[in-house]
């Protein structure tokens, strides 16, 4: 069974923001909601590195653990999805997530946030596949079409890779072997545990 994972190769990421733009455009994500963001460490200094961060689809997802209404579920291939009909917008998942992935359309007084929105690995949600409801609530469902997340597929330097964990680990291992240096599977330990 495939286990879907994201991997961002920090040696290749050039902070072009194409993944961010692709995600926003593909899923028509509203203003203020950022399913994916690029973070630059040591910005403007020697050794600057950037990483594209979104929901990592954790094995033991903290968001799912703290959700008071239990609205998260994991697909058989390891994609963490949630049901916006159940979500009450309490914000707990945002505080629990190590990657800052959960987003909300509002931030107003009296704790009104609206329904949580996050990266779906381009796998939609619990609505019928390719229905209008799924499109408006969760965005497009590329995985059901046999395609991988758009951010990764259109990454110009192939820094951001997504898909079956074995396949992308293999691709990354070949790269490291060719170019030398130490592997940096950023976030994998936190998201997928030690036994990866």
């Amino acid at each position: 069974m495939a286990r879907m994972k994201f991997l961002c190769d920090a040696e290749r990421c050039i902070e072009c923001q194409a993944c961010v733009t692709a995600c926003k455009n593909e899923h028509e994500v509203p203003w203020g909601v950022n399913r994916r963001r690029v973070i630059v460490m040591n910005d403007g200094r020697p050794g600057e590195k950037s990483i594209s961060v979104a929901c990592m689809h954790c094995t033991d997802a903290p968001c799912a653990a703290v959700c008071p209404v239990d609205c998260f579920y994991t697909t058989a291939d390891g994609i963490v999805l949630h049901d916006k009909d159940l979500c009450i917008g309490c914000g707990y998942c945002f505080y629990a997530c190590p990657f800052g992935a959960p987003q909300y359309p509002q931030q107003t007084a009296f704790g009104v946030r609206g329904k949580m929105d996050k990266c779906t690995f381009c796998a939609g949600g619990p609505e019928p596949v390719h229905s209008q409801e799924e499109l408006t609530k969760y965005g497009t469902n590329r995985v059901e079409e046999g395609k991988l997340p758009l951010c990764a597929e259109m990454c110009a330097t192939k820094a951001l890779i997504a898909g079956d964990g074995n396949v992308i680990a293999d691709i990354y291992r070949k790269r490291v072997m060719t170019r030398g240096g130490r592997p940096q599977t950023w976030g994998w330990q936190a998201a997928y545990g030690d036994d990866i």
Partner: peptide, 23 residues
């Protein structure tokens, strides 16, 4: 770090352990 994205729930941290403690 530095990020160009803006929004009330955008953080500039790659990762944080706060949530794990909370959980």
């Amino acid at each position: 770090g530095f990020t160009t994205q803006t929004g009330p729930y955008v953080t500039n941290q790659l990762m944080t352990n706060v949530g794990e403690n909370y959980r």
